Simulated scan of single mutants.
Amino acid sequence: MTALKAHEVARFLARPDISEGIFLAYGPDAGLVRETGQRLIRHFSADDPHSASIVTLEGAEVDADPSLLAVEARTVSLFGGKRIIRVRGATKSIVMTLTELRDDPGGAAIVLEAGNLLPKDALRALVEAAKLGRALPCYPDSDETLNALIRDTFAKEAIRVDADVISTLRDILGNDREITRRELEKLCLYAATNKSLSRDEVLLLCADNAALVIDTILDSTGAGHAEKLELALNRALSSAVDPQRLLATATIHFATLRRWRGEVDAGKSPRDVLAGARPKPHFSRTSGLEQQLRLWSDSALASASERLLQATADSRRRPALAEASLRRALLGICMLAATQ
């Protein structure tokens, strides 16, 4: 029985211990599932990529005609090369066909890509139990695996990065390996000439600029910085960010501050409150949020939240005045913060 652990997959992909059989990439990270399938195909066709016979089938095709997989696996390659069959979106409907191929795949490599499968799933159980079968779990990157991926990618391209680039990227990137790869490839292309990357360049190229300007609006309002607030608001509104979206986000921000403030009033330090927050705020905002927690009292936060709710109601009754309601509410709260 061969059931690989998630941390063993990378080592297996670097040097698979079998060259034929059934290979199942499965898990919740669809991007990593696709990448794993692609890496297996590249490995099995590397000896003679020109003569390799690669057939790609969709799960729906095989579901409609399960015998199609067996026919493709048993067909002799026209040029005598490696026979590779890839099935995307594989399901347990092909278990009967795979049972026929499990012990004698005829030299073919059958690469299956599937979603998140429970241990008792018939497809996963069959592959894990097969002598010529390998099941490769694909789970979202942890902080450690994401850090390693970022470092390895830049090291391979001989790109020097500032000390805070890796932590910045880790906070920006999500849990889909395919998206992560695309973002890293974009950065490598950008840095191909200078062979260096700064945090500011990473933020410029990868961060959601709308999200960044919204963070600036929230933090400027909460800290009482009227000039920064005005500049950030102008940028957001000129970029067609919906005023009602900004009101909703500000309402959530101040409600969150009030919840955190309750923890501070109960005896926690602002730093400890933020360290235990889920989702964890971006590290670049930590000091600003600490300042806001120290600045605002519970009653003042309640007043700010009430003002935002009233502005939201006004904007819904009179959508044409949504921007004016937004500006009036945020500036009023900003001035209140400045007097705390």
Rank of each mutant, 00 (worst) to 15 (best):
A3D: 13
V9P: 01
A14I: 10
R15A: 15
D17K: 09
D17L: 04
S19D: 15
F23N: 01
Y26R: 03
G27R: 01
P28D: 12
L32A: 12
V33Q: 07
E35D: 15
T36P: 00
R39L: 08
R39I: 04
R39E: 14
L40N: 00
F44D: 03
D47M: 12
D48C: 02
S53H: 14
V55A: 09
A60H: 13
E61D: 15
A64D: 12
D65V: 10
E72T: 08
T75F: 08
S77R: 14
G81R: 05
I85Q: 01
R86Q: 15
R86C: 06
M96G: 13
T97H: 05
E100I: 03
G106I: 06
G106L: 06
A109E: 03
L112H: 07
A114S: 08
G115I: 03
G115K: 02
K120N: 07
K120F: 05
L123A: 01
L126P: 01
V127L: 04
K131G: 07
K131L: 08
R134I: 08
Y139S: 10
D143C: 03
T145S: 11
L149C: 12
T153K: 03
A158S: 14
V161I: 11
V161A: 12
A163W: 13
T168F: 00
R170S: 14
R177P: 03
R181S: 10
K186D: 10
K186H: 07
A191R: 00
A192T: 04
N194I: 04
K195P: 01
S196F: 00
L197R: 01
S198T: 15
D200R: 03
L204V: 12
L204H: 15
A207F: 10
A207V: 11
N209T: 10
A211R: 15
V213Q: 05
D219T: 12
T221L: 00
L229Q: 00
L231F: 09
R235Q: 11
S239K: 04
V241E: 06
L247Y: 05
A255S: 15
A255L: 06
R259F: 10
R261V: 01
E263Y: 14
V264P: 00
A266T: 02
G267T: 01
K268D: 02
R271F: 07
L274H: 01
G276L: 01
G276S: 09
R278L: 07
P279F: 06
K280Q: 10
P281L: 05
F283P: 13
R285I: 04
T286S: 13
S287Y: 04
S287V: 06
Q291K: 14
L293F: 08
L295W: 02
L295E: 02
D298N: 15
A302M: 13
A304D: 00
S305F: 14
L309I: 14
L309N: 11
Q310M: 09
A313E: 13
D314I: 05
S315K: 03
R318T: 15
P319N: 11
E323N: 08
S325I: 02
L326R: 00
R328K: 11
L336K: 14
T339P: 08
